[in-house]
Write a protein that binds this DNA or RNA. Structure first.
Lengths: 220, 220
DNA sequence: TAGATTGTTAATCGATTAACAATC
DNA sequence: TAGATTGTTAATCGATTAACAATC
């Protein structure tokens, strides 16, 4: 059975966390109702898109009134966090990026539970990060057999990612939050991958800035 | 004159760094020619898209032969890095994320030049990061007047981002690499923004994983 | 020449936007 | 009721894919 995609398309999925953020802000401000047009104005999108998005997961608004903030929040939370079970997660790479990223995983607001960190640097092994122990990479197989992590976060260089991802998939990892410059999805089409290629992001910003300055004058 | 967008569309721009990476790998492997179909197979895309993309910036291939790797690399480098002038950049926020991110900016491969780091934490001010000094946020205005940074990297919490972005725009910043949970583009439509919302990225991965597990069985 | 591969146009696909009837 | 706003269908837009003539 080939991976059947739900009726919620990828662009909509990517927008869900943004809705979630804005609705949380509204709730914090004590707002209880919001119209698609006001939300759209705040978020820099269109009322059409907001309604289209909300309808695709059936969140009921009230015609003539708008949407109830708490209902929407509950609906979107259910989508993003399911039944509330946290996804058991391991982090590979305890360098600077791994250090920064570990706090996102262990924040109790994102739906993950950090089980352990792995690294090859002997100076780090045995220390703690974000409340869990840093293990030697050698212990990966034994650890996974016992704790069954579902998600792996890759904060290692390209070459290490190539080497470790094979083993992770073999050990049952179902999803990657991938910061390495290695494209996992080509090799493992059945694994869910979210890439964060910081270098790529920075380069494409550069393109857009230089393109703009060409129009305005050769300042850069 | 309203910001006229070039003929290179945003989806293509976002793919440029990926082409750049793959072509560098090919060059490192000593390959001098590549066909659109082979490149597409490696990258997990289609030959049509590769040719369509390459044609939109006029990179000449050779019919019957393919593309010369060095020509393509030169062409894409020119697009990504322009004439080679590095973009003068400041980093706001010297926390864990700022620390990790600073190395991306000061890598000489991305087209940026890190001028200084700013923070409000007195314990950090005066120290060094990625080879530059950490300044007090108070000094921002004076520093910008002298050094004219073009890009600001925001590694601060949402509330600080709200406060500091206004001043940065006023001081002439033209582009943001934005890690804060604050949507700059709504307020400053004329500024080029590249958002990296790590929390959003993590949440949408969670959605996709839970969606998948619903189809395969209620394991999570 | 024959085979391969590009450049480019046309067809398809999907996402966004617009419109409007339903209804609170 | 009148005004406002949703739910939903239709129209538009743009990006991706397919096709094929040009040509190395």
């Amino acid at each position: 059975m080939p991976a059947q995609t739900s009726k919620v398309s990828l662009p909509v999925i990517k927008r869900l966390p943004k809705y979630y953020r804005y609705l949380n802000n509204l709730a914090a401000d004590g707002r209880d109702k919001i119209s698609s047009s006001e939300l759209a104005r705040m978020m820099g999108t269109t009322a059409s898109q907001v309604r289209q998005d909300f309808n695709c997961f059936g969140g009921f608004g009230q015609q003539g009134i708008g949407y109830k903030v708490d209902v929407l929040l509950a609906e979107i939370s259910k989508l993003l966090f399911g039944s509330g079970n946290l996804l058991p997660t391991i982090l590979i790479g305890a360098g600077r990026l791994g250090t920064a990223v570990s706090s996102f995983i262990s924040r109790n607001t994102n739906g993950y539970r950090l089980l352990a960190v792995f690294d090859i640097n002997p100076a780090l092994i045995g220390q703690e990060m974000a409340g869990v122990k840093i293990h030697a990479l050698d212990e990966l197989e034994a650890f996974c057999a016992v704790h069954k992590p579902v998600v792996a976060v890759l904060c290692v260089p390209r070459q290490s990612a190539i080497e470790v991802s094979d083993e992770l998939v073999r050990l049952g990892i179902q999803g990657f939050w991938n910061f390495s410059h290695y494209d996992l999805s080509v090799k493992y089409p059945d694994v869910t991958v979210e890439n964060v290629h910081l270098g790529d992001s920075l380069m494409s910003l550069g393109y857009r800035l230089r393109e703009r300055s060409e129009q305005n004058g050769p300042e850069l």
